[in-house]
Nucleic acid binder design. Structure first.
Lengths: 258, 258
DNA sequence: TCAGGAATTCTCATTTAATTTCAATATAAA
DNA sequence: TTTATATTGAAATTAAATGAGAATTCCTGA
């Protein structure tokens, strides 16, 4: 059974992740004709979610004038901040933690200023930059970055080196973001690289806490890499659909709405 | 599949990075005709993103988005640029190289745009940022970053993880910078961490090329970690004292003045 | 200031992608 | 089941992108 609307959401997620995707590629991936792809893209554009361009589509803010860009950042900003602030409460002085990449996780860094003697590891390039700033103030932090291979447009290090880094460490808590979350199918990402890395990060944490705003739920990307039951706690915003809330609660995963 | 809009974004990023780019250069890099380049530049200019000038285009800085990593202030800028340009001549298409951190080495990155299929590794945080920008245009590059521990105020990753990364790779050429160079005592650094890392990088290169402006010579820092004879070639500027020149030549290390 | 050369613009032909129109199919509602 | 609505894809039309060559403008050095 095909659900066009679900496919559109997945297409949007793909574009968000890859920044630029051709019509041809989408058609092949979803097994639909180019004309249907174009119609999907048009619908997504009408909703302001992407920009349709000749040959495919790009993320909405990549070449947009300044004000639009700022607006986009403010989208879900409050939610992300509340989620990050709640997540920070789970961290005790002296903890060792992993912070994944993504804007919500990056927000968590700003909430660490009152903590002491943390050991923090990350694969996120901008998270690392943020942590480097923090280090000038909190010099009792030990900050590690995984290293690995850079991908164009990506904000994380990937590859076997990155994965083996996380395989070689154990931390009290892993804070992960997510591109797409489905109660039935678990977490999914656009590429195998991202999946491998997230898996390694999840396996390194004695406790795994997922940070995601409510828009990420009941969507899917390409590679399902982890059932939701591997997660210990999900922190999201109150806008989450009540049906999804119940499904998550039934699955046994602790859910916190802020 | 070509997406013209994606190419325009890349062109704009290139102009942001290089400040000035010629039509000819863009045409060659993106494999398009000069007339198409001009049409792209006109579109970008209409959006207020760049300024088209005779021969190419220049940045329009007023609303420029901030780079991921801050550029460092440049003393000896001309000298460093000449040294970096000369160093780039040592690199052939398909080479694997290591680029150490430091402003001279960072300048080398800007000179890689006409190379192809390079494998590049680095420990430098700003070098990595610069390479990430480059990757959007040169997607046949494979860029690895070592990872490791961050230190406040430092621009490299250090620690056993960083050292073991370089111990596990072999490259055609290592380009290293230097804090202090003495013909008699060799290279020295301020901390044991930096020394260990530089040692690993030097040992990983079949050929080791030292880039340093003339102010670095006949100075010493805290830890001597490597005799000068381990270096294959030194590239520096013409202001280097003639006595030092002779001493280096006598030591058997190839010296190039630019 | 002027000439020669380079860069740019203009016009046109070709290729490729996007849109429109129409018919068929699937899904949802009565 | 029947009807209405949405989705899909094929074919034809329209639009966009590209590059070549001629005409024009800009730049540089005498």
């Amino acid at each position: 059974m095909r659900i066009p609307e679900k496919r559109r959401i997945d297409i949007r997620n793909l574009i968000q992740q890859e920044k630029t995707v051709s019509v041809e590629k989408i058609a092949k991936l979803f097994n639909i004709s180019p004309i249907t792809v174009r119609r999907d893209l048009e619908k997504l554009q009408d909703r302001g979610l992407i920009s349709k361009v000749h040959g495919g589509a790009i993320v909405r803010d990549s070449l947009a004038p300044e004000p639009v860009f700022k607006e986009r950042i403010n989208l879900y900003r409050d939610e992300k901040n509340r989620i990050a602030a709640e997540a920070a409460k789970r961290i005790n002085d002296g903890d060792s933690i992993i912070i994944e990449s993504g804007s919500t996780c990056q927000g968590l860094v700003k909430n660490l200023i009152n903590k002491n003697k943390l050991k923090i590891a990350t694969a996120g390039i901008s998270v690392a930059g943020e942590l480097l700033n923090l280090l000038n103030i909190k010099n009792d932090f030990e900050i590690s970055v995984c290293g690995g291979i850079l991908r164009a447009g990506s904000s994380i290090y990937v590859g076997p080196h990155a994965v083996s880094f996380f395989n070689s460490i154990n931390v009290d808590k892993s804070f992960i973001g997510a591109v797409a979350i489905s109660v039935a199918k678990g977490l999914s990402t656009a590429t195998q690289f991202d999946a491998e890395l997230s898996k390694a990060i999840i396996n390194s944490g004695r406790e795994v806490i997922l940070l995601a705003d409510s828009s990420k739920f009941e969507t899917q990307s390409y590679i399902n890499f982890m059932p939701l039951t591997q997660i210990d706690e999900i922190i999201t915003d109150k806008a989450l659909d009540i049906k999804i809330v119940e499904k998550i609660k039934k699955s046994g995963v602790k859910l916190t709405l802020v």
